[in-house]
Design a protein around this nucleic acid. Structure first.
Length: 859
RNA sequence: GCCAAAGUGGCGGAAUUGGUAGACGCGCUGGACUCAAAAUCCAGUGGAGCUUAAACUCCGUGAGGGUUCGAGUCCCUCCUUUGGUACCA
């Protein structure tokens, strides 16, 4: 009869709840482990089998660490703001809070059903005003900060005001000079606008992805999802909140080097940040005083720049366009505007229009034409390029179609056939003052940049692909941005005691019909008289993106009930950084980068003690359907955790997900496999329990064979090591080997069976608790010390040695451990099979590896 | 196109620093128990050759080359799959 998992699992889940077994302990005398799952968005569909994979992994580690004497912080919560709930509200007019609560309840029930050892007293919900009060508070910290380039860190904006009052802009980079008196003489509005340009959160007009039907902007990463569902998304310039994440580009790269993250994840972030070194070069215009600045990573090819290209949106376009070209240029610019970035990217043929304007190549002093073309993007670099068709594929293609001269300035390829983009030796590159001829690319770059800097027509520059973070959404179901727009044109940030700014109640959730969020319809809420200034004001109607709540939730777990601070500094110092963070790789760039950003701002402002939040990161792999394709309703291959648990129990579900394969790999579900681990659990049960579920009398202290002792210690060792390195599949194999050995043994030595329950318990905690009780214990095993292994018991006294001739196994031999190399050689030479293969050939060389093999090389 | 990861039996997957390829599980085959089935237990299971059998031999980790006494593991070239990215100057 199979063991009654239904009864056992319900019993122990109740026990853990009643006894607060997994409430976090903060014992200063013990080491700590902060083990975190990416918290889920509680969708209406409930948990799918992908969720428990990561959750089980961290649960096993958490249970193990508790047994190893650690203070373990292992919390869970809900990333509950988001578009799906709001979409549902638009259709049904049911308040998103109601559906959110229902979904959370489903998720909580399903998670509890799996026996995960979360500390439920620390559960958080991003939509709870007690939580989002602090999301808003952190927004204000960001808003009230500026990035001081001199020290490469965020500082309170008040310190900038003070500095302006004392020294003006004297010590600030790249800003027109402003004396302290001038600063003081500015009006309130002027000062406000001046400071606004420095803040880490600011408003700017940017082209966004606007979805008319949804009535909101979408993040780039959300566009695909909604266009697939048949919605249309267009580019539209809108005034939006931005966050100056680009200020941290260099620190992201630098600090990332020390993190224990998957290499591919760091790599992707690095690519996303897209650092490139080069130079900015100023080109003067023929017959005009204005100049065009370009960014290039190949200043050494400047002698080969035979034309220039501006992005069609470039502000100088209208200035340089000659009257006869105006019509064509305008038409082209108009056409470009209508294209999405995607279309601009996928079109293979290069198009463009000549503006009629000319610039002067500062190296050759030759006059070169200025074109506009959509292959140059306004959003990167300066929105203008010097085109070097000989050594850039795009410029080459463009020059070919428009018959623009191609000049070879770097040797190494054949520019008659194709652009040569590699390094090489300079040629055709000299003027009266400087020559790059004969110089290798790296040196040529150095020489030309020095020359440009000397002549004040260029500077060494580092550029990043990373853009500032578009932070506002025209949604109802998100955190309100705690800002009031006053009638005098200034903004006032709410003060801490005005938080939380609670979402107003709405009767309807339809889009506002304008580009504002549905909050624009809540007139009582929007219109305010500012107590401080007496001015009329209007609240910000945009809300924060879903990423906001997940940017800092890990910090709230440390001190979830604190109503004076987002978390106490003592707790922060005790628990941070996160020792293990597990979640899907789809969050590689966005969530993980945004969270690092907020973390660094808070660190700069002195609220945090660690530079980085996530010390060690791992991604669980996707679980595919049984047919090897992605699980989806339409394919009908979705596995529901409820069904699996009902049929085989939570322990079997947990064990199977871990046995399936390496945590990080993508792998298909297999129902037969669940049955396999279920059989294993039943074999374990029968090892201990009789038909009535009592301790089998055969389980008693009895003499151990060397082999049983060995397999026991080997199991303790391997399971412990494998848990630490998250290799759960091989840990389970080892436990199966142990159980197979004992099933065969027909003695049930209690002295190894009892501790084995502890070894098994992180994986199958319900069954283990029940067995522990059957063995006579009255308390949960959750805090029992994990068994220790004895290395000397694992070593076998006799070892199998492989005898090879020319690298091929010809015989095997059992010898005493540590038999000398000389003896091994002798044994090998006298082995019958070896002698047969050696025959009368000559032994050229003998390789002996102690405790492993002997290899005779013969000829 | 570029960047990254991965290709091992019928299937999921194991294999410290290069040292017995295929652990463990699934499936399959045979057997025990049973009137029978399910469940359970036992044995076998990479392919090929040879043999009454035991034994033995050869081949085998995506393909081809290389380094080495010895390569799933290291190096080079190529192919395939997956993830990311895409005119980033």
């Amino acid at each position: 009869m199979p063991y009654n998992f239904e009864l056992i699992e319900a019993k122990w889940q109740r026990y853990w709840d009643d006894h607060g077994t997994f409430v976090t302990m903060e014992d200063p005398g013990k080491p700590k482990a902060f083990i975190l799952d990416m918290f889920p968005y509680p969708s209406g569909a409930g948990l799918h089998v992908g969720h428990p994979e990561g959750y089980t992994a961290t649960d096993i580690l958490s249970r193990f660490k508790r047994m190893k004497g650690f203070n373990v912080l292992h919390p869970i919560g809900w990333d509950a703001f988001g578009l799906p709930a709001e979409r549902y509200a638009m259709q049904t007019n049911i308040h998103p809070r109601i559906t959110t609560i229902q979904n959370i309840n489903t998720f909580r029930r399903q998670i509890k059903m799996l026996g995960l050892s979360y500390d439920w007293t620390r559960e958080i919900d991003t939509t709870d005003p007690n939580y989002y009060k602090w999301t808003q508070w952190i927004f204000l910290q960001v808003y009230n900060s500026w990035f001081d380039l001199r020290v490469q860190k965020a500082r309170p904006i008040a310190e900038l005001e003070e500095e302006l009052g004392r020294h003006g802009t004297k010590n600030l980079f790249g800003i027109e000079h402003l004396a302290p008196e001038q600063w003081k003489s500015l009006s309130k509005k002027e000062q406000h606008d001046f400071l606004a340009d420095f803040r880490l959160a600011y408003i700017a007009e940017v082209p966004v992805n606007w979805c008319e039907a949804l009535g909101t902007v979408l993040a780039n990463e959300e566009v695909g999802e909604w266009t697939e569902k048949g919605y249309t998304v267009e580019r539209r310039p809108l005034r939006q909140w931005m966050m100056r994440i680009t200020a941290y580009a260099e620190r992201f790269l630098e600090d990332g080097k020390t993190l224990d993250w998957p290499a591919s994840t760091l790599d992707q972030q690095t690519n996303w940040i897209g650092r490139s070194e080069g130079a900015e070069i100023t080109f003067s215009l023929s017959g005009r005083s204005e100049t065009i600045i370009v960014f290039t990573t190949r200043p050494d090819t400047v002698f080969g720049a035979t034309y220039m290209v501006l992005a069609p949106e470039h502000p100088l376009v209208s200035l340089i366009t000659t009257p006869d070209k105006k019509k064509l240029v305008d038409e082209y610019a108009e056409k470009t505007k209508k294209k999405s970035d995607l279309e601009r990217g996928t079109e293979s043929v290069k198009t463009g229009v000549f503006t009629g304007g000319y610039a002067v190549n500062p190296a050759t002093k030759k006059t070169i034409p200025i074109w506009i073309a959509d292959y140059v993007l306004m959003g990167y670099g300066t929105g203008a390029i010097m085109a070097v068709p000989g050594h850039d594929e795009r410029d080459y293609e463009f020059a070919k179609s428009f018959n623009i001269p191609i000049v070879e300035v770097v040797q190494g390829g054949d520019v008659k056939k194709a652009a040569y983009v590699g390094d090489g030796v300079g040629m055709n590159s000299s003027n009266d003052e400087v020559s790059l001829n004969g110089l290798k690319t790296a040196e040529a770059t150095n020489v030309i940049v020095n020359w440009l800097e000397e002549k004040h027509i260029g500077t060494r520059t580092v550029r990043y692909k990373l853009r500032d973070w578009l932070f506002s959404r025209q949604r109802y179901w998100g955190e309100p941005i705690p800002i009031i727009h006053l009638d005098d044109g200034t903004m006032r940030a709410l003060s801490e005691d005005e938080l939380p700014l609670i979402l107003p109640e709405l009767k309807r959730f339809q889009p506002s019909g304008t580009t504002e969020s549905p909050l624009a319809l809540a007139e009582d809420w929007i219109n305010v008289v500012d107590a401080e200034t007496g001015l009329n004001g209007r609240r910000e109607t945009n809300t924060m993106p879903q990423w906001a709540g997940s940017c800092w939730y890990y910090l709230r777990y440390l001190d979830p009930k604190n109503d004076r601070e987002f978390c106490s500094p003592e707790k922060e110092r005790f628990w941070m950084p996160i020792d293990l963070y597990v979640g899907g790789s789809e969050h590689t760039v966005l969530h993980l980068l945004y969270a690092r950003f907020w973390h660094k701002v808070l660190y700069d402002l002195g609220y945090l003690s660690t530079v980085e939040p996530f010390e060690r990161l791992r991604h669980q792999g996707v679980i595919l359907g049984e047919d090897g394709s992605k699980m989806s309703k339409s394919r009908g291959n979705v596995v529901n955790p409820d069904d699996v648990v009902k049929k085989y129990g939570a322990d079997a579900m947990r064990l199977f997900e871990m046995f399936l394969g390496p945590l990080e790999e993508m792998k298909p579900w297999n129902t037969r496999g669940v049955e396999g681990v279920y059989r294993f659990l039943n074999r374990v049960w029968r090892l201990y329990a009789d038909e009535e579920g009592r301790l089998d009398p055969a389980v008693k202290e009895s003499p151990l064979t060397l082999e049983l002792e060995r397999v026991y210690h080997a199991t303790v060792k391997k399971v412990g090591e494998d848990i630490e390195s998250l290799r759960f599949n091989t840990a389970i194999s080892q436990m199966m080997i142990f159980v197979n050995e004992l099933t065969k043994a027909e003695v049930r030595p209690r002295q190894i069976l009892e501790p084995f329950v502890l070894v098994l318990s992180p994986f199958a905690p319900h069954l283990a608790e029940e067995l522990w009780q059957i063995l006579g214990h009255t308390h949960s095993l959750a805090h029992e010390p994990f068994p220790k292994h004895d290395e000397s018991k694992i070593q076998q006294s006799t070892i199998e040695i492989v005898l090879q001739v020319n690298g091929k196994v010809r015989s095997k031999l059992h010898v005493a451990r540590d038999t000398s190399e000389k003896d091994l050689e002798g044994l090998s030479l006298s082995d019958e099979s070896v002698r047969k293969h050696v025959g009368d050939k000559k032994i050229m060389k003998t390789i002996v590896v102690k405790n492993k093999l002997v290899n005779l090389v013969v000829r």
